[in-house]
Amino acid sequence: MHTEAIDPPGIAWQRVSPKYITVRLVEWAVGNLVAVLLLSLPLLFVLLGVWRWPPLWLAVALPAAMLVLALWRLVLIPRQVRAIGYAERDDDLLVRTGIFFQRTMAVPYGRMQYVDIGVGPVERGLGLCTLKLHTAAPGTNAKIPGLPAAEGARLREQLAARGEARLAGL
């Protein structure tokens, strides 16, 4: 993937595991399919003749719109996962996400207060983990999902070591 306009030039991004796509797919399925099914209920009632109010076109349009939206999100997932990247620089960690709404974040090692590793049920099955960085600022929402477990552990140790070496006050 080519470097986007807002990324600092000359960065070799580390990409997250492609298996993370599966995790996102499961999340997508749980979230969106349930929403589509719920929105299809009026259609069902109308077809069965129980409800009279929503006209047929509205009852059809509602889940259809939701379905289109969900499919659009589905198509985006692989690209979104490929857009996630991180890079360890000398003094800070860069994390980038997003295709349409891009974000490139720099978290200085000296500012990290602690590093979390979280593993969800699907991630555990695939041997992945999510790394979360915390600084004193609540706005630092730096999350690197979909790391292979070994890489996550290595990164955590690395960040902790670098953080200790460059520790600064608040």
Binding site: T104, A106, A136, G139
Partner: peptide, 12 residues
Amino acid sequence: QRTQSMALHQGP
């Protein structure tokens, strides 16, 4: 010296 972290954002 108080900057914690920062991010660039860009929408479409």
